[in-house]
């Protein structure tokens, strides 16, 4: 007997949408039926080559299809998603939002992927958030974290014009999510673009303030467990070194610190492997869509 799949669509056939297409086509529970854009593009052509119905007719075209998708993956822009989201919802279609629109709850699948299975709209936060929030959560589930700070370094070539024009949005959204989703009392996020050639693979550093007597062995074990969880959807997510513990100082208000150094190498599906920042977004979106689809299929069974 065929395992049923949930019909889904991608809106926005750029590099992100195309990378997502490659990932979704591997999914055992998602069936990519449609790819929609607003102009003829290489992305639409690639979708058609892959046997997926694709059109430059935008959301109008998508909403005229039968059957409608159950889930749409939005890889356009914040502005486009703000316009499209009410139309999806009116049609009973759920949205996994890769744009910075942030209409729905913020989801990092390794941390809270199970918490919003019924949401009409979920936000994939930011690339830096997807890479670092699992580590903040790994520490905060063991010991209180009064403050966490993340530093995301990405290759200049992997930063698109949207990110560049509104870099404050990254800082605000990621810093907020480090607290809200990661479980720190306060969060701060820093992003650095590096133009070195050949391009550097995405690097992330996570600093968590911890108590002087926090259980360091338990923190280390929790970090390793969480890395395995993220590796289920981002195989190139690795620790550069064991978590580093620094003793309390006056500068840190008598707190100690744990630092986690990460490398995020992309799968090279459509985007180059150095662009781990983009890969972890599409991988997290695909994972979230699968969790939502399994919940739907489970409800039917």
């Amino acid at each position: 007997m065929d395992i049923p799949k949930v019909p889904v669509a991608i809106v926005g056939p750029g590099h992100i949408g195309t990378d997502l297409l490659v990932k979704l086509r591997r999914s055992p529970v998602l069936d990519v039926r449609y790819v929609a854009g607003i102009v003829e593009s290489e992305g639409l052509a690639r979708a058609r080559e892959a046997g997926v119905a694709a059109s430059a007719g935008g959301v109008d075209w998508l909403l005229a299809q039968d059957p409608l998708p159950r889930i749409v993956f939005e890889a356009t822009s914040a502005k486009a998603h703000l316009a499209n989201a009410p139309r999806y919802e009116a049609a009973g279609i759920r949205a996994v939002d890769l744009t910075p629109a942030h209409l729905g709850p913020m989801v990092c699948p390794a941390v809270n992927g199970e918490d919003h299975l019924d949401a009409a709209n979920v936000s994939m936060i930011t690339c830096g958030g997807q890479a670092t929030i699992p580590m903040v959560a790994a520490v905060s589930r063991v010991t209180p974290v009064p403050y966490a700070e993340i530093v995301a370094s990405i290759a200049s070539r992997s930063a698109g014009p949207g990110t560049r024009a509104n870099i404050d949005e990254f800082t605000h959204t990621t810093g907020g999510a480090v607290a809200e989703v990661g479980g720190a009392a306060r969060g701060k996020a820093i992003i650095v673009l590096n133009p070195v050639e050949p391009p550097m693979i995405m690097r992330d550093t996570v600093f968590c303030m911890i108590g002087a007597d926090a259980d360091r062995a338990a923190i280390t074990a929790s970090v390793h467990d969480m890395v395995l969880r993220v590796q289920e959807y981002v195989p190139g997510y690795t620790l550069r070194a064991e978590p580093q513990f620094d003793e309390p100082t006056d500068e840190w208000g008598g707190h100690a610190r744990v630092a986690v150094f990460l490398e995020v190498k992309g799968n090279g599906d459509h985007l180059p492997p150095y662009a781990g920042n983009l890969d972890i977004m599409t991988a997290a979106a695909a994972r979230t869509g699968e969790l939502m689809a399994r919940a739907e299929l489970g409800a039917l069974a």
């Binding site: 530093v151 650095v192 590096n194 133009p195 550097m200 690097r203 550069r240 580093q244 630092a259 150094f261």
Partner: peptide, 18 residues
């Protein structure tokens, strides 16, 4: 040698560990 830029102070620790 690695071409680190301003802001990447975290990489100093990474390099030292290496």
């Amino acid at each position: 040698e690695l071409g680190y830029v301003g802001g990447q102070e975290d990489m100093i620790i990474d390099v030292a560990i290496g």
